[in-house]
Design a protein around this nucleic acid. Structure first.
Length: 381
DNA sequence: AATATAACCAACCGCCGACAT
DNA sequence: CATGTCGGCGGTTGGTTATAT
């Protein structure tokens, strides 16, 4: 418990005697997962390692799907949606972590040019990557390119847009930036709107790296939830950008120009917009990325990661660490995964491959998360 | 050293379609 | 056929960290 208080972050799990969450974290808005199932108040916010272990063990035993059964059968105070998301984005095997490789980035750009914001579909083309990762990457890229006044797509990538828009999933504009309603402006400027396309690729979903059969409902193993605290939110920032680029020609003669919600003769964009493709003298992606300090840093981290971590494609290794054993011992640091602690972990001394207590640290503070995940999955295998 | 900004990331929300009842 | 449930998807939010000023 003392270790919970350590570190550069003052967020830590607090709970009362019954394990009822006292504090909240920033994610804790209105409850979408009904908030309470079977009398157990559902927890929100960052996952702890213990919760991860419970979920991973459950999926290992019973297979994917029936996510709502997780809470019922394990006592894990998470709604089915949350369990599924956690599994898909963090716990399932063969997930790649770390920065995207240049090749992956190129693929993402090409895929986005082809299919727009179809993150899940794009993820099927990038083994080990999740739609959330791709989405985050793209959104960051959009912001960065906009701020830099650079085109979203490199010159060799031509966005391909369909004849008509797909259904709009939401009534509100899907833009990360407030924008006027779409118009029929003939010229296509940089747009945050989803350029939905007619997909030529009907690639089937690749086989799941870990084929987990569905199994009948399980025996229960109960779990005691915990909670997290938070800090107040920060104000949003408005983007600033470079000069307005010249209008672009339609991507193809057979397809109508992409309609930008940011550009209209009647509703001029509230801020300069970017072109969808590059101009002759603009910086290429690679130029930009390699002049980007954060990018270099990420590459460095990525290299370190690949040097210090196991092969992402490997899903069949074992560790002395057993998450469930750890869980059952209840000798845990059940910090929320948003918590930071000065955990005495030395990446260059990992050769011992023993990870005490880490199950209950935030996932992104666990350097060898893949090992941890694999350990959870390989337990008792 | 302190503050501001950018980038990254995890997780939530609402909507939708498929399916069961 | 209507309704409810569940799982999936895309958009968005907000916390944390790294870097710049």
């Amino acid at each position: 418990m003392m270790m919970m208080m350590m570190g550069g972050n003052n967020q830590f799990t607090t709970q009362n005697e019954g394990g009822e969450p006292l504090g909240n974290n920033g994610m804790n808005k209105s409850v979408v997962c009904s908030g309470r199932e079977g009398g157990i108040p559902l927890k929100k916010g960052p996952w702890t390692g213990t919760e991860d272990a419970v979920l991973a063990e459950y999926v290992r035993s019973h297979g994917e799907g029936s996510w709502n059964a997780v809470q019922k059968n394990t006592g894990l105070a998470r709604c089915g949606k949350s369990c599924r998301l956690r599994w898909v984005n963090h716990l399932r095997p063969n997930l790649k972590k770390g920065s995207f490789s240049p090749e992956e980035e190129k693929i993402i750009i090409e895929l986005h040019a082809k299919m727009g914001n179809k993150w899940a579909r794009m993820a099927t083309q990038l083994p080990g990557r999740t739609d959330n990762e791709i989405k985050n990457y793209w959104n960051t890229r959009v912001k960065r390119r906009q701020r830099q006044g650079l085109p979203l797509y490199p010159p060799d990538v031509q966005p391909f847009y369909s004849q008509h828009q797909h259904r709009q999933r939401h009534s509100h504009p899907p833009s990360p930036i407030p924008s006027p309603p779409p118009t029929t402006a003939p010229n296509s400027c940089f747009s945050f709107q989803t350029p939905v396309v007619s997909l030529h690729t009907s690639n089937p979903m690749p086989l799941h790296p870990l084929h987990i059969p569905h199994r009948p409902p399980p025996q229960n193993f109960l779990y005691n939830p915990h909670s997290a605290l938070t800090t107040p939110p920060l104000p949003l920032q408005s983007p600033n950008s470079a000069s307005t680029p010249p209008p672009l020609p339609s991507p193809s003669a057979s397809t109508p120009p992409h309609i930008s919600p940011l550009h209209s003769p009647h509703n001029p964009p509230p801020f300069p917009t970017l072109p969808l493709i590059n101009y002759p003298n603009t910086t290429t992606d690679d130029d930009f990325f390699h002049s980007n300090k954060r990018f270099k840093h990420d590459r460095l981290q990525s290299n370190n990661y690949s040097n210090n971590h196991l092969d992402a494609t490997s899903s069949s290794f074992t560790l002395p660490f057993s998450p469930m054993q750890h869980y059952s011992n209840r000798m845990i640091l059940d910090l929320p995964s948003s918590s930071r602690t000065t955990f005495n972990h030395h990446p260059h001394q990992d050769s011992g491959d023993f990870y005490p207590l880490k199950m209950d640290l935030r996932s992104n503070q666990i350097n060898d998360w893949r090992k941890l995940r694999a350990a959870a999955l390989c337990y008792n295998r």
